[in-house]
Design a binder for these strands. Structure first.
Lengths: 185, 185
DNA sequence: TACAGTTTAGACTCTCAGTACAGGCCCAGG
DNA sequence: CCTGGGCCTGTACTGAGAGTCTAAACTGTA
């Protein structure tokens, strides 16, 4: 069921939640409407499920990047690349997340998972970087982590826009350098 | 009428477009439903009007910051502060913009105005900074400008969240330093 | 007064989320 | 082979709310 529903991400990404009818989801996934309501509380619940899925991947990717060796600065670069990698792996769900960002932000559960998956660990990494001398100390690590999150998602998703579709690898370098310089020692 | 409708921003900011009924807008603004439909094509049209209003302010603020004297780096700092200033002046409309970011991004008109108000001029400023030596040269100025846009909006709006309401001035310094260092020479 | 444009109340249509429910499918226990 | 109880699904329904329509009221102008 989980895998089937992932297809709905493309609808949500293209049209947004409101413009997507439950029947469309049923048609696209092959799961009948009544069954969708059997498994999910409603449309929002399906969206939330997709978001959680993406955020889980993001959390895993960030965790992996943090566990690579090297200085905090090197690992931060790895985090940025991993983040872009997640966006690339789940373009539809990522764009859906951006599309209904506001809705996601209102959900305490989603907000908490964003914190846990990104802001928390990256904030800690900034602190660590100040200690190991590879990054400059910042007054509010979580604030800067949020700024990094915003920079990466906005840029990454912009690059996915049908209008300006450009390979994320090319984006990665400029973006990572920007972020790195922003907190470099 | 324009001023009356600005009140609706608070509804959109708090509940989002879909969860806000046309009757709610009528009640909040004091303008009867039929009259709203006389002036606007529909709910989305009202939202678009609000967004254009914010983006106009943003464009003006950025323009003003660019016209201050000094190096490109100094003016970039001014841009960041001006941007935060706009968010602070129009918190409801700004949050509504974030809330329905996806919808806004789908509208070519809104996307074009975002480009014109921010990405275009800031990209040009980055190029100028590379010439005057106050900023380091970047391969894709518009991409970096987009990253800056993302960093500032995400951080600024996060700071407005009821949960973590913290004065934007405090945010400004850390954020501006982050952005500045990110492109400093 | 007459006329034109603006504003409004109220009743209407139509789409769609979500519900209700009855039947169908499948499988374990007898 | 039956049978009972889960899980799944088709179909019909309810209700909310967007947007439309129309006729009347109001406003300013000549």
């Amino acid at each position: 069921m989980r895998e089937k529903v992932l297809v709905a991400a493309e609808l949500f990404a293209e049209f947004g939640l409101d413009a997507t009818k439950m029947e469309d989801v049923a048609a696209a996934t092959g799961v009948p409407k009544a069954t969708l309501y059997y498994y999910f509380e409603g449309k929002e619940d399906i969206l939330a499920f997709l978001f959680v899925h993406v955020l889980d991947q993001l959390g895993r990717a960030v965790g992996g990047a943090l566990r690579t060796g090297g200085t905090a600065a090197e690992r931060l670069r790895a985090v940025v690349c991993a983040h872009l990698g997640v966006i690339e792996s789940f373009p539809a769900a990522s764009r859906a997340l951006q599309f209904d960002l506001g809705r996601a932000a209102r959900s305490p559960m989603i907000a908490a998972r964003t914190e846990a998956a990104f802001v928390e660990p990256v904030g800690a990494l900034l602190v660590e970087g100040a200690r190991d001398g590879s990054l400059r100390p910042v007054a509010h690590p979580r604030l800067v982590a949020t700024a990094i999150l915003g920079a990466v998602t906005t840029t990454g998703l912009n690059a996915l826009t049908p209008a300006a579709k450009r390979p994320l690898e090319r984006v990665a370098d400029d973006l990572a350098t920007f972020v790195l310089s922003g907190v470099a020692a």
